[in-house]
Design a protein around this nucleic acid. Structure first.
Ligand code: MN
Ligand code: MN
Ligand code: MN
Ligand code: MN
Lengths: 220, 220
DNA sequence: ATAAAAATTTAGGGCACCCTAAAAAAATGT
DNA sequence: ACATTTTTTTAGGGTGCCCTAAATTTTTAT
């Protein structure tokens, strides 16, 4: 049984290790947990003791298979609760993350599997992030960044890679939400900003900073 | 901000002090929290420090107005989540209490008020217990015990005063669930057991032990 | 009224998780 | 290669919540 704090560490290690499952550094964890490196070292010793991570001093850390399964459970719960809050309770997508940070630690498998069914087995959360399956597999969502879409190409917005409330609110205001049809009209070579058309509406302008955090899929 | 443990103490003091808001003893709290009296004393000092309880050494404890409001918030959350699990997720009434014990500590007011609306502002939980309002008032549900209903009288089952899973399962199996129409056919003077008729079905037998934990309302 | 029993508090300490300061190891620059 | 900087660990300690044992107060019994 992982404690709430341990679950947060496992989830964080999962996210920081990225698609290549690279080692995560003590300092990176300290920064994200809002604690100090010394505290992280304490926790890493404990997680290693429980066989949830591979840990050699000074060498960074990776999840064990067991640790990864725990992390995926937490992420599954987090994302399902986000879907619930947006789809059933009418929250906006920029409001749900902090509450899901708490709900994700309610461990009942029965609860989460019934919630999954109640929500009709969603494949992704309100931000386009894939929802791990009950059997512990993370569906691979291979999207590309809007910033890399060539001129003229039409794409569907699928999600975001930046989840802060201000960014999400900005996108909503621009009409850039998952499912939107987006066509790249023009790319400014100098600062990589774009002029795009969203759902056939008036052209809009997006900076590179914004475009690289928007995930899209080429239209079928 | 009350911690999870503090919230559990406040809720417990509320429940143990009963309708008359009587003083609750250290030992009664130790028994229910599955801790020792010394630990309870520690916590009582802290709750008194925070003005959540009235506490004089050796004299037992009562909630302050502030403490009662906190307790009612926890109870409101607990009962709304129980309604959600039964009404929306298809749980049975004997399964939801332990999960609600965890969910009740998710503090977001926005979440709980939206959940309340989503559930259509239920007045009682699956066990017939009234749900405190968002403004912090506990609706008074004045039911009587089935054990005290006179022979021939028809009543509606409204809830239970004993919440253990085995008892609830037993009631379900007997068809004794909230909303059932119950008529007392016969009372055994000696052991106060009853023969009753549920929803016009075959007569059933209930012991005093069962009958005194079933809450009913005289039929209108 | 007083002795015995019961309830409660105090004293002292453990574990989880966090901290600062100092020590040690690894990475970096010349 | 070696001095400097950066990263990480170790040492020592704090708070929240729990414990056992001992002291104190209240209740009960005679
Ligand atoms: Mn989130
Ligand atoms: Mn979390
Ligand atoms: Mn309950
Ligand atoms: Mn609780």
């Amino acid at each position: 049984m992982a404690s709430l704090t341990e679950e947060n560490y496992l989830k964080l290690i999962y996210h920081l290790s990225g698609p290549g499952y690279e080692e995560v550094s003590t300092n990176a964890l300290a920064e994200q947990t809002q604690t100090k490196a010394a505290s992280v070292t304490d926790m890493l010793r404990k997680l290693a003791e429980k066989n949830l991570i591979h840990y050699k001093k000074y060498q960074g850390v990776r999840l064990t298979e067991e640790g990864q399964q725990e992390a995926l459970k937490v992420i599954r719960r987090h994302r399902l609760w986000e879907v619930f809050m947006v789809e059933k309770l009418g929250f906006r997508w920029d409001e749900v993350h902090p509450i899901a940070e708490e709900l994700e630690h309610i461990a009942s498998e029965e609860l989460i599997n019934r919630l999954d069914a109640f929500l009709d087995f969603p494949e992704s959360d309100p931000h386009g992030d894939p929802i791990p399956t009950a059997s512990g597999r993370m569906p691979s969502a291979e999207y590309e960044k809007l910033a890399e879409v060539p001129v003229q190409q039409e794409v569907i917005m699928m999600g975001v890679s930046e989840h802060t409330a201000p960014f999400l609110q900005f996108l909503s205001k621009s009409g850039l939400i998952p499912g939107s049809l987006v066509q790249v009209l023009e790319v400014n070579e100098f600062d990589r900003s774009m002029t795009i058309q969203i759902n056939e509406a008036h052209p809009s302008f997006v900076s590179y900073e914004v475009a690289r955090n928007i995930l899209v899929q080429t239209k079928v």
